[in-house]
């Protein structure tokens, strides 16, 4: 029983990490077909926004987290206005440009804040079960990641904005002749993606060492999850993240954490070799 709970905890922890790392990237990629290579730096901005406002401005943690998200959204908005919007329809160029942005941001953080920054304590307490001790905050993260997904489903599948957004990805020209402000839909979608990345940084900030390369801890997980999720990340995200975290958790449980990460990446290579359209492609095929 305790071993089962332990496995569930490890699995949930890995799953929520993959989901939260990938979700902002998945929204921007799924809706706009843009791979945002600066995604990791958006997470960094969210984390630093939170830590700086909690440590220096002495704000309480939830408000500090909200500040972190807000700063990331403002950054995303400015970026979309100045650069990203000129690169729609040039997917490779947008990847290259966002990579440049990622370099600028991460190195600027290094210049401004130095190689490391005093971190926060993990909120809530630990509890004991058998021989192991568990963090309540990490259990809360699992809940948060699932509720964010549910909210996104409602936003993109049930709300008015969701209808407009889906019409825009389906066919931007026809959507705009029907009166949809395509530009605005793109801007709002990019801001939602930025907000989610900022949120990931904000809620993981108390659990990690705050360094300028903090976003890099997320970026590989985010990319492999989105890649295995396939062309429609909204459908594929949950199966992809569950499958990958299942592999990572079980291999880590039996062997070693580094081998767990290697197994994760190796299985990604195998999945895209045999399921080039990812899990969403498989699900769509099965439905037909």
């Amino acid at each position: 029983m305790i071993i089962l709970f332990n496995l569930f905890y490890q699995f949930g922890d890995a799953l929520s990490f993959l989901l939260l790392a990938a979700i902002g990237l998945a929204v921007i990629f799924g809706m706009m077909k843009i791979i945002n290579l600066a995604h990791g730096e958006f997470i960094t901005i969210g984390a630093y926004g939170t830590v700086v406002s909690a440590k220096i401005l002495k704000l309480p943690l939830p408000i500090a987290m909200a500040v972190g998200v807000l700063v990331t959204v403002i950054f995303g908005y400015i970026l979309e206005r100045i650069i990203i919007r000129h690169l729609y329809g040039r997917p490779l160029d947008s990847v290259v440009a966002t990579w440049g942005i990622s370099l600028i941001v991460s190195q600027s953080f290094l210049v401004i804040f130095g190689p490391s920054f005093e971190g926060l304590q993990t909120p809530l307490s630990n509890f004991q079960l058998g021989a192991y001790s568990y963090s309540q905050y990490r259990l809360l993260l699992i809940l948060i990641s699932i509720s964010i997904l549910i909210l996104l489903y409602i936003l993109f599948l049930k709300s008015n904005f969701g209808t407009l957004a889906r019409a825009t990805i389906e066919n931007p020209k026809i959507a705009s002749t029907l009166g949809v402000k395509v530009d605005k839909v793109y801007t709002v979608t990019f801001c939602i993606g930025s907000a989610l990345a900022g949120l990931t940084g904000a809620i993981y900030a108390p659990t990690m060492t705050i360094v300028p390369s903090i976003g890099q801890a997320f970026i590989v997980s985010a990319f492999v999850t989105v890649v295995t999720a396939g062309a429609s990340p909204f459908i594929g995200l949950i199966p992809a993240a569950s499958f990958l975290s299942l592999i990572q958790t079980s291999v880590t449980f039996y062997y070693h954490a580094t081998i767990g990460v290697l197994a994760l990446l190796f299985s990604v290579i195998l999945i895209i070799r045999f399921l080039p359209k990812g899990f969403s492609g498989l699900l769509i095929k099965l439905k037909k």
Binding site: V96, A97, W99, L103, I104, Q107, S108
Partner: peptide, 12 residues
């Protein structure tokens, strides 16, 4: 930082 700026400006 300069290399990143060059990359962004060139692609734009």
């Amino acid at each position: 930082i300069l290399m990143g700026l060059i990359l962004v400006i060139v692609t734009r």
